[in-house]
Design a protein around this nucleic acid. Structure first.
Lengths: 163, 163
DNA sequence: TGTGAAAGGGTTATTAT
DNA sequence: ATAATAACCCTTTCACA
C-alpha cells in the first residue's frame, strides 16, 4: 500500500485539465462535478475520475471551510521569531514536536538566517497571547529568546497558490 | 439587502451546536449534512439550515481545497518584512493595494512595532523569488527596504482556529 | 482516458409541529 | 428552531468506445 501510494505520487503527471481543476478547487471547493465539467468541457465522469485521482495522489490534501476569525473571537494574530539555546538534532525535533501541539500555533517554520523558528500565533486577544507566551512557549526548555510582532490589520490572506 | 446582512452578522449568536459545526467544517468541509447530523445528534434539515445561516452571516467565508504546494511546484516560502519610505494614509493604502495584486503574495499584514508590513511569499524557487523582488516588490515606489527570511521546513500549517 | 446512462444517495424546499 | 416528506440534483459506477 505504502509503496503503491508513493509510486502514484512520484509518477503522476498533471495535464492542463488537471491544473485547471486544481486551480478551480483551491478557489472554491463547493463546485460540483457538473459545474467543473462545464467549465472544463469534459464529461462529469471524467472530472469525477480526475478529482479522485488527485486526492489519492495527495495533490489535494484536504478541503476545509475558511472561517472569519474575528467573528469566532480570534482577535489577535502575531508572528514570533524563536531562537533556541542550541541546535542539536534533538533540540530542534523536540521543539517542533512540542510547539506543534499548541492550538494557538497555526504555523511553524524552521528558518534560514538569523533566527530558528517563525510561528504564526492566533489568540483571542493580547491577554490570551500573554498567557500563551508565559505558560506555554517560554516554558519550553529549548527556547532561548522569543521576539513577537503583532498584526495591526490583515490586508490579504490567500490559501490558493498561483502555479 | 446590505443592511439586512449587516444586522445578521452583528446580532447572530452562536450556540454550542453552531460552534461544533464550524469546528467540524474547518477541519473537513467534505462532511455531508447527513454525517454532520449524526455527529451532532440533530436532524439533517436542522444541520442544513444552520450551515446555510452560518454561510450567509459570513462565519464561513469560503470552502477551499488545500493543495500540496511541493507537488504543484511551489518550492519556496519566504517572509518579507517591508519598511515604507513614509507612513501617510495614501502611501499605506497604495502599497497595500499594489502588493495584494501580486500572486506571489499569499498574505499581507500591517504590523505594529519596528516594521510596517509582513508578507508571506510563495514562489517556485529562489530564482522566482529573486525576480519577484527585483521586478515587482522593490519597484513599488512606497518601499524603502525589504528584509526577507527563507523557510527551510514547514513543521505545522493549520487553517483551523481553536476557539 | 473519455463518454453516457442507470442506480443510489444526498441536498434542498416545503410543510407542519 | 426542529422534524418529516418529497422532488430534484448530484455522485458514483459500469459498460463501452
Amino acid at each position: 500500500m505504502k509503496t503503491n501510494n508513493q509510486n502514484l505520487r512520484d509518477t503522476m503527471n498533471l495535464d492542463p485539465t488537471d491544473i485547471k481543476l486544481l486551480k478551480l478547487l483551491q478557489e472554491d471547493a463547493t463546485l460540483s462535478n457538473k459545474e467543473l465539467a462545464e467549465k472544463l468541457y469534459k464529461s462529469i465522469a471524467a472530472v469525477h475520475e480526475r478529482v479522485k485521482k488527485l486526492k489519492k495522489a495527495g495533490y489535494i490534501k484536504k478541503t476545509v471551510a475558511i472561517l472569519d476569525r474575528n467573528k469566532i473571537g480570534i482577535g489577535l494574530i502575531s508572528f514570533s521569531q524563536v531562537f533556541l539555546k542550541n541546535h542539536t538534532f534533538e533540540a530542534l525535533n523536540e521543539f517542533e514536536r512540542e510547539v506543534s501541539k499548541f492550538p494557538e500555533v497555526m504555523e511553524c517554520y524552521q528558518m534560514a538566517g538569523s533566527y530558528d523558528f517563525m510561528l504564526r500565533i492566533a489568540t483571542k486577544d493580547m491577554e490570551a497571547y500573554h498567557k500563551f507566551l508565559r505558560h506555554k512557549l517560554a516554558v519550553l526548555p529549548q527556547v532561548n529568546t522569543v521576539q513577537t510582532y503583532f498584526v495591526l490589520s490583515e490586508t490579504k490572506s490567500e490559501t490558493a497558490y498561483h502555479f
